[in-house]
Design a protein around this nucleic acid. Sequence first.
DNA 1: AAACTCAGAGAACGGTTGTTTACTGGATGA
DNA 2: TCATCCAGTAAACAACCGTTCTCTGAGTTT
Lengths: 216, 216
Amino acid sequence: MSHSETVGVRQAQKQRTRQALLDAALGLLEEQSLSSMGLREVTRAVGVAPTAFYRHFRDLGELGVALVQESLASLHATVRAVLAEQAGAEERIDHTVAVVERYVREHPAHVRFIARERHGGVRAVRQAIAGELDRFATEVAAALKVQPVSVGWSDEDVRMLAELYVDRLVMTASAFLDVSDGEGEDSERWRAVARTARRQLRLISVGRRHWHDAVS
Amino acid sequence: MSHSETVGVRQAQKQRTRQALLDAALGLLEEQSLSSMGLREVTRAVGVAPTAFYRHFRDLGELGVALVQESLASLHATVRAVLAEQAGAEERIDHTVAVVERYVREHPAHVRFIARERHGGVRAVRQAIAGELDRFATEVAAALKVQPVSVGWSDEDVRMLAELYVDRLVMTASAFLDVSDGEGEDSERWRAVARTARRQLRLISVGRRHWHDAVS
DNA sequence: AAACTCAGAGAACGGTTGTTTACTGGATGA
DNA sequence: TCATCCAGTAAACAACCGTTCTCTGAGTTT
């Protein structure tokens, strides 16, 4: 019974407290930013000695980087699915916005963390987010490129379009979040954000279709 | 000679240290975020007793709000000029990006502050920035509305377009900033950011021109 | 010239911070 | 079974924090 344990009781418990630290930090970060959060504050929330922190992370910056991967991993998987699907432009947009909505509802803390620390005060975390969003944009670009609308587009132009989309998704998610704390998630303003997001994506989509008409 | 003094030596000196506090804070904020900056840290940078701070601001949040107005006032004035000018879409875009470039070169700290604290940890500051950008979008919307391209556009659609533009400007400014610390302001990547920004604005502009073709 | 105002100084407060050092005790592997 | 490992503990550290209270002295008003 003991030889088939995949991880061992020892390492399992270690990862449990590690995750507890990440969860507690994410919770605390809803009302402050990473650079103002205290190491002791996190360990206190978990119910563990301050020194235990060092068994898992060198400092809070390292914890932040771990949170970046945790935060973007799920979104990454979700959006990948949307990109893969074959559909008309209109349905695609509707579906994309719906996915973002759902993501904000289910992982508000993650969204807030990314939006806040994207330009935040900790260099390592900023770079981690930038890198992750970069890989994200690369993936979107690849998906856009194979669509029929993209014939005659240079790689550079596809890339700039992809970045436009990624930025919009992040901004939209953040806009949903701003509404959701203050009013409910079922308020009129929430629906207004969704409608605006769809129209903005649609406008970009229209610009994309007529790009070559106007490039002169 | 004394009766015509507009301010008085007294109030003048007060405003001088107040400005010194703002400047010192802005400087310190280049490498951290508002919620992690210490009150004493600011006064130390100015060369003044910690208690002197309270003569000017209730807390750092209030100082932050003051910084928001200072930061956006100049940009506001600059962009207002661009909006007013009569020009073709192409020149307009080039000019807009050039203005943003110049603004980032001349006020990098202000740009960083806005980008960082827009989603930062201090509620009052976030709200101040949101409010200011909202007024900003309203102004852009008004300018867009009177252009010939906008006939048949609902106010809501003009508004969503204006928000799209404002968000892009902020993102562009932030992108310039990211490049400028790391590489110079005359690097190849700087110019790449400018080119991408122009094309993104152009794509939005194309979408705008063909909006009614596709609204079905 | 005297009375008043008020920006800034100075000292002290209780509390929190990150980090170090030495330790314990249960899981682990020989 | 016994030696080893190592996640988490406990105590102490100097350094900082925001805020309060009291005081001063130069600018202002009468």
